[in-house]
């Protein structure tokens, strides 16, 4: 579904990504784990074409999207839920969700209301607060809003960047359960996480990113038992 081939990114003289290659198959959860600054966020930013790539190519559903405009990439069905959530604090919850519809290319004239209903069903909390400003929500609710807004696009691939960042453990668990639920709807998920233990629990496959290269990849369960991964990322 998604093919990333030999991706290179430079920040000035800094060589941040040094030839990243991986694929994501339909209905998979693939997780990218690694330490702060390893290049995980750079990978998704490069896929969304928000930063300049120095080399490499990205294909999605057979189309080359390496140099497409960020707004066109969204319209292909790739939803990027960024680190820090980036919800609009002075727009209401519902307005935030409506914005998620901009990249939706479906011809169904009722899609906005249908998708809103679907998101409200998944997150009853958002429905309760739909007239409230996004900035007044708690961190967990904001993350739910960001995910709900992404679902308004009815995307094929969802790239989630650090959804657990700054949330209480019990909320993190809710979010991860939700990711599984979304996958069961038939969505494909690329999950960036620092919380490697939880990410490997729900993922099918994992890639360990270290200093801009893929140092290890494979089945999530195998990775979770790899002595090197345990020592470096699982903190046991």
């Amino acid at each position: 579904m998604l093919f990333v081939d030999n991706l290179h990114v430079h920040y000035g003289l800094q060589h941040a990504l040094k030839g990243i290659s991986f694929t994501v198959q339909p209905k998979e959860i693939v997780t990218l784990i690694g330490a702060n600054g390893a290049g995980k966020t750079s990978i998704v930013m490069a896929i969304s074409n928000l930063i300049r790539k120095s080399a490499g190519s990205i294909k999605f559903l057979g189309q080359d999207i390496t140099q497409s405009e960020p707004s066109d990439i969204v319209k292909q069905g790739i939803c990027h839920i960024p680190e820090g959530r980036l919800i609009f604090p002075y727009l209401t919850v519902e307005e935030n969700l409506i914005l998620g519809d901009f990249g939706n290319t479906s011809a169904n004239p009722n899609r906005l209301n249908e998708n809103l209903d679907q998101v409200y069903q998944l997150f009853p909390r958002l429905k309760e607060r739909r007239k409230q400003n996004g900035g007044t929500l708690s961190g967990g609710e904001q993350q739910m809003l960001a995910i709900g807004r992404g679902l308004m696009l009815d995307p094929k691939l969802i790239m989630l960047d650090e959804p657990s960042l700054g949330l209480a453990p019990i909320i993190v668990e809710q979010i991860f359960e939700l990711i599984l639920k979304i996958r069961d709807w038939g969505k494909t998920i690329l999950l960036i996480e620092q919380n490697a233990k939880m990410a490997l629990e729900i993922a099918d496959r994992g890639l360990v990113i270290e200093n801009g290269i893929v140092s290890l990849s494979g089945n999530a369960a195998t990775l979770a038992n790899d002595p090197g991964v345990i020592a470096a990322y699982l903190g046991i």
């Binding site: 707004s71 604090p89 901009f102 696009l153």
Partner: peptide
């Protein structure tokens, strides 16, 4: 409010 976040949504 935020140009980059808006672009990410299409």
């Amino acid at each position: 409010m935020n140009k980059q976040a808006a672009a990410l949504l299409g």
